[in-house]
Design a protein around this nucleic acid. Structure first.
Lengths: 141, 141
DNA sequence: ATCTGTACTTGCATTTTGCAAGTACGTAAT
DNA sequence: ATTACGTACTTGCAAAATGCAAGTACAGAT
């Protein structure tokens, strides 16, 4: 899909940012599994290759979904963390998970988050959001 | 992305079915704009090309999201209509629209559905679902 | 000094997409 | 009856994206 510089449709806008086959998997790892390092993304079951991971991280940073935080004089400290724009994808990610859960007979229900998603989605979101207080301090109450 | 025959993750399952750049645009047209004919999909702003449209329709039928209804002896009557599996994507589509609405400054808010989505999402879903009573009769009350 | 781990980049084969054209069939107009 | 037109596709080919393997650069540990 050729990049459309500006679209009038919110769905196309979204797809242009994270509609490729890999970006949403990275975002899943960030949002749900609290991953932040290159090595962690590489370790996912889906086996993304290094060049694609690199390109996707860069485009997500450009799109304002992730910020790259580099350690001083040590690349191994580099972290990718979500912005509010990425955190606002929680409802999307949860909606997709609900759908996948309903229709994928191979879903691994022993993953703790799966149970929690069905039992208390809002609570799950609240809990996961706390992982990002360092980057996007939430008004706690 | 190579097709993964079975995945344990509901998100990857979903992406394998409609995670390419075009399928969700077709589903948007089916679910939101009530399109059903090849010619209608071709007429979308996004200008999908004929070979891709053909391939995507076929794969969505195979995945059980659409059914192809052929007229007798006239190809121009061919229709593609959503199954329940596709109708269950309404929450996903709405979640994506909400996100796109928030971050896409070019969203055309004069499209009636945009206003309605923000004002009364559930009502919008109910109304749109009535378009598919022929295919998936809903329990009305 | 060497080895290991990490975050990348590069090269190249394979696959997917984008565009233009063509085909097959049915209906409508002359 | 013949021609033209609309519709739902398929085919061919160039361009782009992906997948895989290998290589590079640098920091910390041994």
């Amino acid at each position: 899909m050729k990049k459309r510089p500006s679209t009038v449709c919110p769905i196309v806008y979204a797809l242009d940012i994270w509609g490729d086959p890999w970006s949403l998997i990275i975002l899943r790892d960030v949002l749900i599994h609290n991953k932040r390092h290159y090595r962690e993304f590489l370790a996912s079951r889906e086996h993304i290759s290094t060049n694609i991971l690199s390109a996707r991280l860069q485009s997500l940073v450009e799109a304002g979904l992730l910020v790259k935080i580099e350690g001083d004089s040590n690349r191994a400290q580099t972290m990718y963390r979500p912005t509010q724009k990425a955190l606002d994808l929680f409802p999307v990610v949860f909606a997709i998970m609900h759908w996948g859960l309903k229709y994928n007979p191979n879903t691994d229900m022993t993953i703790p988050i799966m149970q929690e998603l069905q039992a208390d989605e809002k609570g799950l979101e609240m809990r996961l959001l706390q992982n990002f207080d360092d980057v996007n301090p939430n008004i706690s109450q």
